[in-house]
Design a protein around this nucleic acid. Structure first.
Lengths: 151, 151
DNA sequence: CTGTTAGTGTTGACATCTCAACACTAAGAA
DNA sequence: TTCTTAGTGTTGAGATGTCAACACTAACAG
């Protein structure tokens, strides 16, 4: 156990805080994101036998009324065409969605897919509250929202 | 706890801002992380012919003096044993690291690996500043650091 | 009608991540 | 010694993400 994190002994001239270095601040950002992500997924998607991308797709389709153009789905998620195509192929094989040609391609929730997302949706909101927003003050949420919008 | 949210969480009904819903706040968090990650990697790892996991491993080995026990590497990154093993196999095949049996397994930078990380390291700091900390006020960095540590 | 161009999806190859199962080593208990 | 247990790494299979190449359609110019 070496924990050679440069200890308090040497450096700190002015800043005594943890994230002196920008790189450390970035690492903390990544860690926080990863921790919250793992907990939320464990409480929602995994609990329902779905993967994270499954849940993301199903939630977006549901929010749009159950049906979307493949390209609109990609745009609203910021995903690549290839990524959407592969993911929908896997989900189609498992009976969660159907794809039909109509100019472009229209993706539609199956009964099975709608059942799945309906079952998970309330838990998703609860999980995000429990693992994220409940741990923050209103002031902090405001600050972070402002920062996220800027990036 | 050091988290006296002082009943702040109760004020949610008054928020008229963009992220009313916790789920939207979480989406914004994910987007911000993804955007910064993509930009930093594009300016550093990709520019040097390395992948993100390559860079992560090399940077940690370098910070530790060039050599670490495989289990310590895993622990310091919060990675799974399997993930480290597969990644090191790939990196070993490309000549970036060597593994030697000594009780456990010790991972060491090769000359090629040290050259690579040495070339990238200054750019990493610059990239994180440009794409993240330079866009934030000292006040905001302080707030975010506090939040990240709590999660 | 023919050719061009842009937009949209698919496919295959490969890198990465996770899970379950297995193998090896080191300590200690019988 | 022999057995057990915990810690550590590896392997193979399947899921996911990325890249390059290809195919199809629509709109438009010649």
């Amino acid at each position: 156990m070496s924990t050679p994190n440069g200890g308090a002994a040497a450096s700190d001239g002015a800043m005594a805080d943890a994230a002196c270095e920008p790189v450390d601040f970035w690492s903390a950002f990544k860690r926080a994101h990863e921790v919250v992500r793992a907990r939320v997924i464990a409480d929602t998607a995994e609990a329902a036998g779905l993967s994270e991308p499954d849940l993301t797709i199903l939630a977006n389709l549901d929010k749009a009324g159950g049906s979307l153009r493949q390209s609109e789905l990609a745009a609203s998620l910021g995903w690549d065409r290839t990524r959407i195509s592969h993911q929908l192929t896997r989900m189609g094989n498992r009976g969660l969605v159907i794809r039909e040609r109509a100019g472009g391609v229209t993706v539609t929730l199956t009964d099975s897919g709608r059942t799945a997302i309906t079952a998970v949706h309330p838990g998703l909101d609860t999980a995000v509250r429990r693992h994220l927003t409940d741990k923050l003050s209103a002031q902090e949420i405001e600050t972070l929202t402002s920062v996220f919008r800027r990036l």
